[in-house]
């Protein structure tokens, strides 16, 4: 898979050369003009992205070096003042911890769990049932978070919630907590909801990746008498490694940008115990009127995302399997 990617970039250039030699246009000036003219294909994306994505993000970094009063419109330059304040903000650290917990748990369930589940589904013989299970598990990802949030509120409700009912029925009644109301469990209750909503999405993507493994490899393994579990470990896993890497990248960056889930479920409470960086940005910027400090926290999100990207590079740099 990887090999195909690197080859393709080279191939793109190849198209250009072939065109130039066989095309009717030969003059250098016309060729240069034509090259620049091809810019029209990417112009829309470049304009839209620079204008509506890059410019606002740069603007955000500028804001993070200021302190502003939105009501009077007064803005003063404070340099790195917001960043030094950030180091002493306990909630930033607990939010960072919550984001990390989000990332780790999501990787376990939405990458490794989804991989195993996809392996099981793809080992089914009937095409109908394969499609059925994939689609069914995907459904929660297609549901609005407003809906999921209200649904899980009722599931987690003390006393009458379905989770408490199940726990009492299975003899775990002593472990019951006010899930969303306890400072110790709130964030994990939200993470659990997030797994419910997200695992089907990654299962589907893994299923797609497993389908791409040539069937002959499995056939050969079967003939050699290799059992299903070993087939997963020694064939499916290494051959879907690119997808795994991609999913880990997407899942971790997603975990550092998480916002809606926490906002809908607890708003960061109780007592800021379930704040994540995204909601703390919002809390500081929109609720406490401190956009400069909010923007500084946003840059922590940015750095975390970039570090994940760098780590992913390191991961993909190591040997890869191709076929």
């Amino acid at each position: 898979m990887k090999a195909a990617g690197s080859r393709a970039i080279g191939k793109g250039a190849g198209v250009g050369r072939t065109d130039a030699s066989t095309g009717r246009l030969r003059g250098r000036a016309r060729e240069a003009f034509r090259q620049c003219f091809s810019f029209r294909w990417v112009a829309a994306a470049v304009i839209v992205l620079v204008w509506f994505v890059y410019f606002p993000v740069v603007d955000n970094f500028i804001i993070s070096t200021t302190r502003s009063d939105i009501y009077t419109g007064d803005v003063s330059y404070v340099g790195l003042g917001n960043y030094s304040r950030l180091l002493h903000d306990k909630v930033v650290w607990s939010a960072l911890w919550n984001n990390c917990a989000y990332a780790v748990i999501s990787v376990i369930f939405q990458v490794f769990g989804a991989f195993i589940l996809a392996g099981i589904i793809e080992s089914l013989r009937s095409d109908f049932w394969r499609r059925f299970w994939r689609a069914l598990y995907f459904v929660p990802s297609a549901i609005s978070l407003t809906v999921t949030g209200l649904l899980f509120y009722f599931i987690y409700q003390p006393q009458i919630g379905i989770l408490d009912a199940v726990m009492r029925a299975t003899g775990l009644g002593a472990l019951i907590q006010p899930w969303l109301g306890s400072e110790h469990t709130a964030i994990y209750a939200i993470i659990a909801m997030s797994q419910w909503q997200g695992f089907g999405y990654s299962t589907l993507l893994f299923a797609v990746a497993i389908q791409k493994i040539p069937g002959e490899i499995f056939d050969a393994a079967r003939i050699d008498g290799i059992g299903p579990i070993r087939r997963i470990i020694s064939i499916t896993w290494p051959l879907t490694r690119e997808m795994t890497g991609l999913m880990i990248l997407v899942t971790i960056t997603g975990a550092f940008q998480v916002f809606n889930e926490v906002m809908v479920m607890t708003g960061g409470g109780p007592n800021n115990a379930s704040q994540v960086l995204g909601t703390w940005v919002y809390q500081q910027g929109f609720i406490q009127d401190d956009f400069g400090y909010g923007a500084a926290i946003a840059s922590v999100v940015f750095v975390a995302t970039m570090l994940t990207g760098a780590a992913h590079l390191w991961y993909t740099k190591r040997g890869r399997v191709s076929w």
Partner: peptide, 19 residues
């Protein structure tokens, strides 16, 4: 240009809200 377009994947909407 490729980097410009795909770099957009790493940027989160919350960061750009106020601007």
């Amino acid at each position: 240009i490729l980097a410009l377009v795909l770099g957009g994947l790493m940027l989160s909407p919350t960061v750009a809200l106020i601007p």
